[in-house]
Design a protein around this nucleic acid. Structure first.
Length: 928
RNA sequence: GCCCGGAUGGUGGAAUUGGUAGACACGCAGGACUUAAAAUCCUGUGGCCAUUGCGGCCGUGCGGGUUCAAUUCCCGCUCCGGGUACCA
């Protein structure tokens, strides 16, 4: 009996639980280290082999840090609220809590088999009242705060009320939904309802009529990151724009801090770039255009104030409030028709028809504040209501959309920027707008001849002085819509009195999710909570019917892990002061614009109100690559039940058919299992090559329909958890996407067997020697210590596995079974393959768990080389090798190389022009 | 369109600062042990040419460049993957 992974792994799984090996607590005597995995949504499909990739990497790092003396917080939990469980509830009537609990149990079972060092006593589930109490609590805090731009932080709303009572809106600079202007006297006469209404304009969690992404199939609104190409990310259902009264979080108030914070964190440049683009800071100017024969003013945002002399028309978004104010009676009908038309088109159609230019003239004319020119105001859906002011000044010569619009409707085009070295040309002859990033201003009155950069500066100064406009920074980042018309989410701690929202008292938290009879909207279109009985406060005020979105519960879970059982606070000051922030966060890129923005926002807010000590939650972040599926195919001869092997298939007319990858090994099909797979194939016949049926393959998404889902449990059953862990790492660099291909797994399994045999004889009897190691053995060990330590710090786990293989191969050929060599090697391997290492550690007579061993330190004295095998190259081509002492001078190396008999062949008839000697590296002789 | 990655044997990949390209492993081929199989072990394995022996040429997506020396740096392309998009 050789390496019995089943027995070993079972033994240690039980022992670790019994001895609470992974339980941790605050320990002031040791430095902390916090390693976090993005917690999973427990789906009905269970874990596939791609999920644990990041978990294994973070587990290796956690164990490595622990071995280096750190007190490591490494928790796991579940993002338990979500649409799939609710959709399933709608179809089957099964309560989503039951489905979720069942899925969690399955996930837990799968996770437990892989040997993670999680402290399960800290597990959180976002759907548990003891957890979402603090989601609700944070929401109340957001309601009770506003964002002050001057101090760049959240402040209590009571302070704002005091300011209103004393000075009205005079002198405030806050984030708000719309700029309000009133005096202290006005405030004094406002009734309670009016005051509440005004305050909603400033609260960080606020209720407002906003343009939302409405998904009628899901029956709910969605946040921007939950919509892609006009379809819901979950389910791919159409999404349309609609104005609805919804809760929102004023994330946009934090745009600048979210952007600046990126400079302090150790994340990949590409991820930071995605966040920067999503935040979308653009610096420009807001400018006011008067409207002819009207007291209406149009405010527009532009990054190119310099091109104001090239403006030949204005465009309003169809949803803009100004449309109704500006449209002349003569154009009323046409404008109405156009607006009806654009409303009918869904967001998706608008995106699909980017090239199609539509619009209508409002009948009004604006006056260019710099030239006093009268220019027509148009309405078109290429201008977005949600960005800037919903109105633009069109410069068709230098903007492709404005250009297309001008061409479509015969509007004038005027060039105002000419690239250096070119002359102005007639825009009538152009096919497209001209680039204006750099150049010299023309047709622009006083700024003619200036560079673009200088012209922007001067124009901005001019409009600020004259009061025409002001310098302004705009962000693409919008507030997060926080209401969902769904059941399976956190209830809002909100009730309504006189149509105004009020927060429950903290003592009433958690407000638990009520039972309902059906998981569908009510007959009159209210969200599912409208079905709940007695859904009201003790005084009879109705409670909020919406629930919170998916990202609510995941925005502060990393804080809760620090102090998961605390009923008096989200996290205690002591726990937060000790654990501080996440040192290493591993997860997928798909959360780049959702979770990673929201949780940073949430964290900054909690930082502002003094709950926590860190402004940024995740110090270092690594995105693991996706594990793609690798599908297998068989080839059926058309019209028959005969299947032909891969390399013979071209001789027949065949149809490729997906087969379950679990009955294929090294691309060879298990014929019996295939026949048993489907009654249709019971009598299948095969045309084999070399007695085997070889399948074709392709890289596709891992999904049930492709029959390429590989379950980690199956791998654990067949090879053991240690093999699975090593193999996932061996597959390639952590951050790179790669297909799951079981073809190489035998290699790492063999490696573990060889490792086992280092201290076992042929009969599997333990055989460990206490002899002193030789210099050669010590060199192998210390070279490996250096390599592994270095690799782990760089998250290069794939090369670590190779280094282990090399070490074990070398020790095997030396027949080394010495405790002083194998024991430290086992410590190095323990983070990767904890079960076998724990067993070997014990077998070699060590006390305690290998988890608490001391990480070995590479001793350079064993690694000193005194000679080096120089590659000797001629004109850059390596010709032979020459071993020389390392302390030889460059001159002597040169002489030795030229004197070597092999050199004569390459020197013959040629002249040595130069010799490059890099001691310890290379010798290159240049001849000619 | 824009932004970010990537391209190395039959396959996954290695080469950390410009210094021996292909480590390690899979697969494949041949061999040992065995009645046989499994397991294990040994040898070979980038391509082409030569193969009696030594060996030679080419080669990291393509085309240029810098350098004694380029998978690595620079310029210009091609293809693949991901993100994002009327953002003024």
């Amino acid at each position: 009996m050789e390496y019995n992974f089943k027995q070993i792994e079972n033994k240690w799984r039980e022992t670790w639980i019994r001895q609470k090996t992974y339980k941790i607590d605050i320990d002031a005597s040791r430095p902390k280290f916090y390693v976090l995995d993005m917690f999973p949504y427990p789906s009905g499909a269970g874990l596939h082999v791609g999920h644990p990739l990041g978990y294994i990497a973070s587990d290796i790092y956690s164990r490595f840090k622990r071995l280096n003396g750190f007190n490591v917080l490494h928790p796991m939990g579940y993002d338990a609220y979500g649409l799939p469980a609710e959709q399933y509830a709608i179809q089957t009537g099964q309560h989503p809590a039951i489905t979720t609990e069942k899925n969690i149990a399955r996930y837990r079972e799968q996770l437990d088999k892989i040997g993670f060092s999680y402290d399960w006593d800290r597990e959180v589930k976002t759907c548990e009242p003891s957890y979402y109490k603090w989601t609700q609590w944070a929401f109340i805090q957001m309601f009770n705060h506003y964002y002050c731009n001057k101090s760049q932080k959240a402040l209590p709303i009571a302070q704002l009320e005091q300011h209103f009572a004393a000075h009205g809106t005079q002198g405030i600079d806050t984030a708000c939904t719309e700029e309000l202007c009133f005096t202290a006297d006005d405030w004094a006469v406002y009734d309670l309802k009016k005051r509440q209404d005004v305050l909603l304009n400033y609260r960080i969690a606020y209720l407002a009529d906003t343009m939302v992404n409405w998904c009628s199939t899901l029956g709910t609104v969605l946040a921007n990151d939950e919509v892609k190409d006009g379809l819901s990310v979950r389910g791919g259902h159409p999404v349309e724009q609609r104005v609805m009264r919804q809760w929102s979080l004023r994330v946009s108030a934090y745009a600048e801090r979210l952007l600046n914070g990126l400079d302090q964190v150790d994340w990949s440049d590409s991820l930071k770039e995605v966040q920067r683009n999503w935040i979308g800071r653009s610096q420009g100017a807001e400018m006011t255009f008067k409207v002819k024969d009207s007291d209406v003013e149009m405010v527009i945002f532009t990054t190119r104030a310099d091109t104001v002399y090239g403006v030949t028309f204005m465009v309003l978004a169809p949803e803009s409030e100004l449309v109704a104010q500006l449209t002349t009676p003569a154009q009323q009908q046409a404008v109405n028709d156009y607006i009806v038309e654009t409303k009918k088109r869904t967001e998706r159609e608008r995106l699909a028809e980017v090239k199609k230019v539509t619009g209508v003239f409002s009948g009004a004319y604006a006056i260019n504040p710099l030239t006093n020119e009268e220019i027509p105001v148009w309405i078109s859906d290429y201008v977005l209501a949600g960005y800037g002011t919903g109105a633009i000044m069109a410069v068709p010569a230098h903007d492709s959309r404005d250009f297309a619009f001008a061409r479509q409707f015969g509007l004038p085009i005027r060039q105002v920027v000419v690239p250096v070295g070119e002359t102005p040309s007639d825009p009538q002859t152009w096919d497209e707008s001209r680039d204006s990033k750099e150049g010299i201003m023309v047709n622009s009155g006083p700024i003619n001849g200036l560079s673009v950069k200088e012209a922007i500066r001067q124009t901005a100064a001019h409009i600020t002085q004259t009061g025409i406009g002001r310098v302004k920074t705009n962000y693409r980042l919008r507030d997060a819509i926080f209401s969902r018309q769904r059941y399976w989410g956190e209830p809002f701690p909100v009730y309504y009195k006189d149509d105004m929202p009020y927060m429950l008292d903290e003592s009433q938290l958690p407000l638990t999710l009520p039972e309902i009879d059906k998981y569908l909207p009510t007959e009159n279109g209210e969200p599912p909570l409208g079905r709940a009985k007695n859904w009201a406060t003790a005084d009879g005020y109705p409670l909020e019917l919406n629930t919170m979105p998916g990202f609510a519960g995941s925005s502060a879970y990393y804080l809760r892990y620090m102090d998961p059982k605390n009923d008096g606070a989200l996290v205690s000051p002591e726990a937060n002061a000790y654990w501080q922030d996440v040192d290493l966060y591993i997860g997928g890129t798909e959360h780049a614009t959702g979770h990673l923005i929201y949780s940073r926002f949430w964290n900054k807010f909690l930082f502002d109100i003094g709950l926590i000590v860190k402004d940024e939650p995740f110090k270092k972040l690594i995105n693991q690559g996706m594990i793609q599926g690798r599908s297998n195919f068989v080839y059926r001869i058309k019209g028959s039940n005969t299947f032909v092997s891969l390399r013979l298939k071209d001789q027949y007319d065949t149809t490729p058919i997906h087969v379950d990858v679990n009955m294929v090994q090294n691309d060879v099909l298990d014929l019996e299992r295939f026949k048993a797979w489907n009654p249709e194939y019971a009598n299948a016949e095969f045309i084999l090559e070399d007695g085997k049926y070889v399948c074709g393959w392709a890289v596709e998404k891992m999904s049930k329909s492709m029959f390429n889902v590989v379950n980690p449990d199956d791998i654990v059953d067949q090879y053991g958890a240690d093999t699975l862990r090593l193999y996932e790492m061996f597959l390639g660099p952590l951050e790179q996407s790669k297909p799951w291909d079981t073809n190489g797994i035998d290699g790492v399994h063999k490696f573990l067997r060889k490792t086992w045999r280092l201290i076992h004889d042929r009969e599997d009897n333990l055989s460990v020697s206490a002899d002193a190691p030789t210099a050669e053995e010590l060199k192998i060990l210390h070279k490996t210590i250096r390599k592994i330590t270095d690799d782990i710090e760089r998250f290069a786990f794939n090369t670590s596995v190779s280094a282990f293989m090399i070490a074990v191969n070398e020790l095997t050929s030396l027949k080394c079974n010495k405790r002083d060599i194998v024991s430290p090697l086992v410590v190095l391997l323990a983070p990767f393959a904890p079960h076998i290492c724990e067993e070997m550690w014990q077998l070699m007579g060590n006390s305690g768990s290998v988890c608490d061993a001391q990480w070995p330190i590479a001793d350079e004295q064993y690694l000193v080389e005194n000679s080096f095998e120089y590659p000797v190259s001629f004109n850059g081509k390596t010709r032979f090798k020459l071993t020389l002492p390392l302390d030889l001078s460059s001159g002597d190396i040169e002489k030795a190389a030229l004197a070597h008999e092999e050199s004569q062949k390459w020197l013959e008839g040629k002249q040595v022009k130069k010799i490059v000697v890099v001691p310890g590296r290379i010798i290159n002789v240049v001849v000619g």
